[in-house]
Design a protein around this nucleic acid. Sequence first.
DNA 1: AAATATTGGTCTAATTAGTAGACCGTGGGC
DNA 2: GCCCACGGTCTACTAATTAGACCAATATTT
Lengths: 130, 130
Amino acid sequence: MTKTSKDANSPASDPFVFEQPCPIRDVLDRIGDQWSLLVLESLAPARRRFSELQRAIGDISKQMLSRTLKQLEQDGFITRTVYPEVPPRVEYELTELGRSFEQPMRELVQWADSNHRQIVEARARYRATR
Amino acid sequence: MTKTSKDANSPASDPFVFEQPCPIRDVLDRIGDQWSLLVLESLAPARRRFSELQRAIGDISKQMLSRTLKQLEQDGFITRTVYPEVPPRVEYELTELGRSFEQPMRELVQWADSNHRQIVEARARYRATR
DNA sequence: AAATATTGGTCTAATTAGTAGACCGTGGGC
DNA sequence: GCCCACGGTCTACTAATTAGACCAATATTT
């Protein structure tokens, strides 16, 4: 979803078609990737350093963690603080914007938690009928 | 995030590390991809057929739309109804589970809408200081 | 009668994104 | 002197995504 142009065959008149640049698309492109939500959730309870985040998420590669953090910093969700020590220490922390995102994120997580069973059941049902 | 194993160096004792199979991870893996949220949002106001969804989202490939819909159906978010006409008509509709997801999704979208400006500004600020 | 368009997909080849793991610099402990 | 810790980056390999051809069956156009 990197393309912002390509409004071919999208009559702006049709209110059903997403506008193209669309704030929702723009934001969802960022937080709707494989890792951003997980990182934000890890950062919600407390500031963390790079290696803590990596351990917490478990199966993210350094490169993707690095890239995700950079994007989140860019978009103003988190701050990055470097402590000039050796070995280096870098801490990531939610900004006010990032903290304001906690509420909708929590709802999402809560929904996931409440409905996980149903989803698992749906999957089993699907496998049975395929 | 296809891997569910690989709990190497993740002491189950550490409450900060995500459990591994984790309902939140499991659900986020599904709806936290590039397209699922967009599809669900498109389906929120009304049932849609395949081509309508493709036009609405605009820059999704047929293959990814097809795959996304299949996953959402598998997980019980939507139903798929085939009408034996020619040319074929296939309609997708939210299930009750899918509709129950509207609430947290709406909050997310609302947040995105409200905070989009701030994010754009943060990006500009970042570019200025890089 | 013969093309042509329509719809919901699938298949293949080419591009792009993501992964694992080596590597780097610097200072502290052994 | 030697190796470890930390936060990355770089490279080579692998996995995911895309664009576009193709399909079946009928209705419409020429």
